[in-house]
Amino acid sequence: MTASHRLMLLNGPNLNLLGTREPEVYGTATLADVEQLVAEVAGGLGYEVRALQSNHEGILIDAIHAAREDCAAILINPGGLTHTSVALRDALTGVSLPFAEVHISDVYARESFRQFSYLENVAAVRVVGKGIDGYAEAVRELVAQIGE
């Protein structure tokens, strides 16, 4: 598979706890369910997916840097780093790949500190508050934008 037909899926801190962490907020789907959904939707559009979850900002940044070598775009749920990480924003803008920002919960209906995103004004696609189905929507929108 060529880089033009590969997406990087990144999930940030605490998303490894999906399915058990605050199910009333995040639902009962697991990270494995998210990865499978993204792989199925992307596969149907002719893309393969490389997935990574990390609780460590530097590992996510390294993965973003590596994505420029073999991916057409990035799909990211940065978790709590959304609201705190200029470094993550700099990595995403620095690699010049289009990216989608996804949030399972409706961050605008939650605590005020969750309503700010360092990524929202540089993301090609942003999907918020649609549960894990938001990942599928983001894949479709992102693939449509990259035109393949």
Rank of each mutant, 00 (worst) to 15 (best):
E111R: 01
M8G: 01
I76D: 02
H83L: 01
E111I: 08
L31G: 10
V38E: 05
S4R: 13
T20E: 09
A72L: 06
D33N: 11
R110I: 08
L119I: 13
V143F: 00
A73V: 07
T84N: 01
R21K: 07
C71Y: 05
L18M: 11
A73I: 15
R140V: 10
V86L: 15
S96P: 03
A87Y: 07
L15C: 10
T30I: 09
E111P: 09
N121I: 08
E40I: 06
V41C: 05
K130N: 11
H65G: 07
G58P: 03
E24K: 00
I61W: 00
E69T: 08
F116V: 10
K130F: 06
D62P: 02
T20I: 15
G129H: 02
R126E: 07
T20L: 08
E69I: 08
H83M: 08
A136W: 02
L52H: 11
E120F: 02
A124L: 14
T93L: 13
R89E: 04
A66N: 13
F116S: 14
A87D: 14
V102W: 01
L17I: 09
G27M: 05
L10Q: 14
L10A: 02
L81S: 00
Y135M: 07
E148F: 05
L92I: 03
Q53E: 14
E48M: 04
R114N: 14
R21E: 12
E101I: 08
P13L: 00
E137D: 15
G94F: 04
I76T: 01
S117L: 02
L52D: 00
G129V: 05
N11H: 12
D106S: 03
T82V: 02
E48S: 15
G80E: 07
G43T: 05
I76Q: 04
Y108N: 14
L10C: 09
A144S: 06
L15W: 06
E48L: 03
L52P: 04
G79A: 13
N121S: 11
A138F: 02
R21I: 05
T20R: 15
E24N: 12
L119E: 12
G58K: 07
G94I: 12
I132H: 07
V128L: 11
D106I: 05
G12A: 10
T2S: 15
S96Y: 10
G27W: 01
F113K: 00
I104H: 00
L60H: 02
E111F: 00
G44M: 13
P13F: 00
L119D: 06
Y118P: 03
H83T: 03
A51R: 13
K130E: 15
T84V: 13
S54Y: 02
A32C: 05
I104Q: 01
L18G: 14
I132Q: 08
K130D: 05
I146S: 01
L81A: 03
C71M: 14
A91F: 00
V86Q: 11
D133L: 11
E35W: 09
E111A: 09
G27Y: 09
I59Y: 03
V122R: 07
D62R: 00
V143T: 02
R50E: 15
P23H: 10
E137I: 14
P23Q: 07
R21M: 05
P13W: 01
E35S: 11
